[in-house]
């Protein structure tokens, strides 16, 4: 099992479970992106030309740029953010945390290569992997230390 320090230095992005991520083209409308994000329980769409990643549009972009402005017919290519930082599947978890922390990103795209589809890594994916490695520290806990069961079985 080892320490958290070793885990973050050893595990690669490719070892994380791939999260579902929606890819759209530049011409997809904002309204359609809203529908995809809602129905697919996704936090961002990746905007691609064929399989090449050209931009990203996240919940934060909605909050900051479209929530009060409308634009539902506008193509997402006019609203997306350019890719600022990205990771490869060979990068380590420590690299992902450093990039997210220093860049202030909550999700970092994986452009994909050699026929791989583009993907996305989120901070929660990293926390989930850490929790799965240390279940007795992070998962097998009562939600509150002061939680008390009223019967021996807790029922």
């Amino acid at each position: 099992m080892g320490s958290v320090e070793k885990l973050l230095a050893k595990v690669r992005i490719r070892d994380l479970p791939r999260r579902r991520v929606c890819t759209v083209s530049r011409s997809t409308s904002l309204g359609e992106v809203y529908r995809l994000l809602d129905e697919e329980h996704s936090v961002a769409v990746l905007v691609c030309d064929d399989n090449d990643l050209v931009g990203i549009f996240t919940e934060r972009d909605i909050l900051n740029r479209t929530a009060l402005e409308g634009h539902s017919d506008t193509p997402i290519g006019d609203l997306m953010s350019p890719i600022k930082g990205s990771l490869s599947t060979d990068d380590r978890l420590a690299d992902a945390i450093a990039l997210m922390h220093e860049g202030g990103y909550r999700h970092v795209p994986l452009p994909g290569s050699k026929g791989e589809k583009p993907g996305l890594v989120g901070g929660r994916d990293i926390l989930l992997l850490i929790a799965e490695h240390y279940p007795e520290t992070l998962l097998n806990l009562p939600p509150r230390l002061d939680q008390r069961m009223t019967t021996p079985e807790g029922g």
């Binding site: 958290v4 320090e5 973050l8 420590a94 945390i97 450093a98 997210m100 922390h101 202030g104 909550r106 989120g122 901070g123 929660r124 990293i126 926390l127 850490i130």
Partner: peptide
């Protein structure tokens, strides 16, 4: 999540 990542970053 961002605060926890910062904690991981600074501590590890």
């Amino acid at each position: 999540v961002r605060n926890i990542l910062a904690f991981l970053h600074d501590g590890v």
